[in-house]
Amino acid sequence: MKRAALTAEHEIVRVQLSERSYDIAIGAGIIDTAPPFFSARAKISHAVLVTDDQVRPLYADRIAAACAASGMRTTLLSVPAGETSKSIAMADQLWNQCLAEGADRKTVVIAVGGGVIGDLAGFIAATFARGLSFFQVPTTLLAQVDSSVGGKVGVNLPTAKNMVGAFWQPQGVLIDVDVLATLPEREYRAGMAEVVKYGVILDPDFFAYLEANVASIQLRDRKVLTQVIARCCQLKADVVQADERETTGLRAVLNYGHTFCHAFEATCGYGQLLHGEAVSIGMLCASRLAESLGRISPDVTQRQRKLLSALGLPTVPPQVDIDLVMTAMQRDKKVEHGKLQFVLPTKLGMVELVGDVPVKLAKQAINDG
């Protein structure tokens, strides 16, 4: 298919997955290229856009109007903003709305929003009529650098995050850094936790770049953000290409800090801690755990703490019942035969999956925060 023209200043990251390969386009002011971006990668007669009530007036209405003007039959479905919409009940509502709107196997789903919308809309695409093509237009930093790439889609159960879902790759991802201008400060900072994560797990030079560019990042400099997001997407693409469905264990490195993170989110109640905030705290817990196991020196943890703090992220665990946190950890997808497993650093830029970690040390890593 002919590729649609974008702008002069944009980056393309290609996720190489054989017949499921796709492009991630990253740049400033490229959201208005959405209809030709979609059309160049899929034959679309009916587009179902899924968004939330906060993103709808900012970007989704605009994209829906552009899709309709380009000749696509367009349906726009909106859900309440927030993690609570990532549920079986909301999926059921969307399935029925799709049915009522005449969606069929030729319909294409387009997610316009943050990680919740990407996961939810992707889950609808993966399951309705046994699978529909879909695109991601992520509008939060966290979604742009993490959840929109790699094909993980799904919903939460009341006591277990991301427990119901599928691997369902998009046809393409369109990332406009300019949409971050309307992102609330807290959401923007939360997204930076996943950015820092990539430096810790895969790229010490990128970590150093972040340390050197804190001021530009805080100012949401378009050129710096384009570079940062493109590097994150490339690092994730490299991992996904090597272990698309988490069969070799390599993709598990992307879950650095997430065993603690998901347990904090579930224990506090979804929505109390933003995901990126919980990731920030979880990474430091994991780093302290690695210290206690003699895997790293304290300076590795300190560099992470200093950078996360400079970016305005929380570093202290929430005041929650430690036993409830440990119970929540037992529901982590990396648990094998009841044994906790954690992604832990061996040095900056390298992590490993470590099994059979003593519960006492995991608790200590939280309490020492």
Results as ranks from 00 to 15, higher is better:
69 A>E: 08
72 M>H: 11
73 R>A: 13
73 R>K: 15
75 T>L: 12
77 L>F: 09
78 S>E: 14
79 V>R: 02
80 P>T: 06
82 G>F: 00
83 E>A: 03
83 E>G: 10
85 S>W: 02
90 M>Y: 13
93 Q>Y: 15
94 L>I: 09
94 L>K: 01
94 L>W: 03
95 W>G: 12
99 L>F: 12
100 A>D: 12
100 A>T: 15
101 E>C: 14
103 A>W: 05
104 D>M: 03
107 T>D: 02
109 V>F: 00
110 I>W: 08
113 G>I: 05
113 G>C: 07
114 G>W: 00
115 G>E: 02
115 G>A: 11
116 V>S: 07
119 D>K: 01
123 F>D: 04
126 A>S: 08
126 A>L: 02
131 G>F: 04
132 L>C: 02
133 S>L: 15
134 F>Y: 04
142 L>W: 08
143 A>T: 07
145 V>L: 04
145 V>K: 09
147 S>V: 05
148 S>Q: 05
148 S>G: 01
154 G>T: 05
155 V>S: 08
155 V>Y: 10
155 V>C: 01
156 N>K: 10
159 T>W: 14
163 M>N: 15
164 V>P: 11
168 W>F: 00
170 P>W: 04
171 Q>M: 13
171 Q>V: 13
172 G>Q: 01
174 L>D: 10
177 V>M: 02
177 V>Q: 07
177 V>R: 04
179 V>M: 06
180 L>T: 08
185 E>D: 11
185 E>R: 12
186 R>W: 01
187 E>N: 02
187 E>M: 08
187 E>A: 12
187 E>H: 11
187 E>Q: 07
188 Y>G: 04
189 R>T: 05
189 R>I: 01
189 R>Q: 08
189 R>C: 07
191 G>N: 06
192 M>D: 15
192 M>R: 09
193 A>G: 07
195 V>F: 04
196 V>E: 00
196 V>Q: 00
198 Y>A: 11
201 I>T: 10
204 P>H: 09
204 P>V: 12
204 P>T: 12
206 F>V: 09
